[in-house]
């Protein structure tokens, strides 16, 4: 009972945040509603027992990635969005595509309503067990992600740094 109530409350907050992200015009409002979505998703993870995932979700997503977003919005001083008519491809292909995809997902879910019910904290993901799994079974992907992050850091630095004004080569006195 408690599980269902908590799920519904935080699920509602989650969906409200996601819809607010679409409804808001100003990027900062969108970013903050995305933070709300992420925080309530962390609660959903906790309900499923994934406590470490929940903590990392808050630290990494809400605390680092979204701060980066807010930071960039502040840095570029992005104002409210201007309305344009939008792209025609999105109208013609995108919205029917989303509707079709949504119908497909809904149909699959209705067909498979006999999914098992899980209690509160179904599968406890303690940091210890997750760490053991990460460093034994998933060692190679783990190391690969470290290289990925390194490349991403270098790419970000190269892309965001201002292109240097060309140095004038002092001509040799002859």
């Amino acid at each position: 009972m408690l599980h269902l109530v908590l799920f519904l409350v935080f699920g509602a907050i989650c969906v409200a945040g996601a819809v607010n992200l679409l409804a808001q015009n100003h990027p900062i409002s969108s970013a903050l509603s995305l933070v709300v979505v992420m925080a309530s998703l962390a609660v959903e993870y906790l309900l499923l027992g994934a406590e470490f995932v929940a903590a990392v979700q808050v630290i990494v997503y809400a605390g680092a990635v979204m701060v980066l977003f807010v930071f960039v919005i502040m840095l570029l001083n992005a104002g409210a969005e201007e309305r344009t008519q939008g792209s025609r491809v999105a109208l013609v292909l995108g919205i029917p595509g989303v509707l079709a995809g949504g119908l497909l997902v809904a149909w699959v879910l209705v067909q498979r309503t006999n999914t098992p019910e899980v209690p509160l904290g179904a599968l406890p993901g303690f940091p210890k067990t997750i760490g053991a799994l990460l460093f034994h079974q998933f060692l190679l992907p783990f190391e690969v992600t470290s290289i990925l992050v390194l490349i991403a850091i270098m790419g970000a630095v190269v892309l965001a740094s201002r292109p240097e004004p060309k140095m004038k080569v002092p001509e040799k006195e002859s």
Binding site: I28, F52, V58, I59, A62, A64, V70, F126, P127
Partner: peptide
């Protein structure tokens, strides 16, 4: 008493950055 108490503190403080950033903006 949480199993992830220390992580909770780190997470909550990292969310606290928004207070500063938004106050400035």
């Amino acid at each position: 008493d949480l199993n992830i108490g220390l992580l909770l503190i780190l997470g909550v403080t990292s969310v606290g950055v928004y207070g500063v950033a938004l106050a400035g903006w």
